[in-house]
Design a protein around this nucleic acid. Structure first.
Length: 323
DNA sequence: AGTAGTAACTGGT
DNA sequence: AACCAGTTACTAC
């Protein structure tokens, strides 16, 4: 666990006092220690020693209850400390490699100017827990930020959406610019898992929630000007499996220049789709309605964005470029 | 097997 | 990357 995260806890506490600390430890969406209570005499020292054993602590959800020792007369310090330590050991034994990241068995998807990889990143058990965490922790844009303007008309998007990313980044689509909210530890973990398995870093994630098969997304290519050109986009799917359709730009519409078969792909629970250059240049994609499907699907697309100050300025080199 | 009711698809805006 | 109207495809009886 990194020191900055420990400092985040420490600033809520006065060293030397005694506290009851309750916290949720989450590791890529898997809550291993739901709640534990123990008392620290020397917060500065103890927190560091004990928490350093844990890879990631979910800061958003931790609750620090300042209590005087005398108000916790039923509190058995030894018992709880021992229990915590055992759980921490168990937790530590579940390393990132055994818990989540298995070598992805990628399926290559190839067509003319289409190059994607698809595989299952999270097992059902882990994907279930991550989805559950998403439902508990994510908030979505509302009002103006949840609208798009198409052919002169404003519409509410038929799904829920939110973006998180590095400071200053935003995402523009259909006359709407959506600022990125800051990363959370939970999203950090998922992003890092996706980075590990793809070998690419990402500074932005767009999250879409489809409450059932009626929610959908129309055909589009991802907006080029905010994205680092040529950089792959990683799309993590959770929940209700949904069809995903690729259509070649030349085969759309009534006066299509050519006839190219669309590509249909089922995006499964826990799966990762890596869309590589030049897929996004030539192919539109969509998540069509499937009225019979009732389950929630949450999708996270991880991207590398052009910093806001450089957006639309082609003379400035993006901060990341493919080799 | 024929058909009514729904879902999916297409083109226009 | 939205909805709508018109058409086609599918499904269940």
């Amino acid at each position: 666990m990194s020191v900055p995260k420990i400092n985040k806890i420490k600033k809520h506490l006065d060293p030397g006092n005694r506290y009851t600390v309750m916290l949720f430890v989450t590791f890529i969406g898997v809550t291993s220690l739901r709640k534990c209570c123990f008392i620290y005499h020397d917060v500065n020292k103890e927190l560091h020693n004990d928490f350093a054993r844990i890879d990631t602590v979910m800061m958003d959800k931790f609750l620090v209850n300042k209590r005087k020792l005398e108000s916790a007369d039923d509190f058995d310090e030894n018992h709880h400390t021992k229990k915590y330590k055992q759980e921490a050991n168990d937790y530590e034994a579940l390393s990132i490699k055994t818990l989540i990241i298995r070598p992805l068995k990628w399926r290559d998807l190839r067509a003319e100017n289409l190059d994607c990889d698809y595989g299952i990143l999270f097992s059902k058990v882990n994907a279930d827990r991550i989805l559950c965490q998403c439902e508990r922790m994510l908030n979505y844009n509302e009002g103006q930020l949840a609208k798009v303007k198409i052919f002169g008309k404003w519409h509410d998007i038929p799904r829920k959406q939110v973006a998180h990313g590095d400071p200053g980044l935003s995402y523009t689509f259909s006359n709407n610019t959506v600022p990125a909210r800051p990363w959370t530890p939970f999203l950090d973990d998922i992003r890092d898992a996706v980075s590990d398995v793809t070998g690419h870093s990402f500074d932005f994630v767009l999250i879409n929630r489809y409450k059932n098969g009626c929610d959908h997304m129309g055909e589009h290519r991802d907006d080029e000007k905010d994205l680092v050109h040529g950089y792959p986009i990683a799309s993590l799917s959770l929940g209700q499996p949904r069809d995903f359709i690729f259509k070649h730009a030349d085969s759309r519409g009534k006066k299509a220049k050519r006839s190219i078969e669309p590509l249909k792909l089922l995006l499964e629970h826990g799966s990762l789709l890596l869309m590589k250059h030049p897929t996004n240049t030539y192919w539109y994609h969509a998540l069509p309605q499937r009225k019979r499907l009732l389950g929630v699907r949450i999708n996270m697309t991880f991207r590398q964005m052009v910093p806001a100050s450089n957006s639309g300025n082609k003379t400035t080199k993006p901060k990341a470029e493919l080799p």
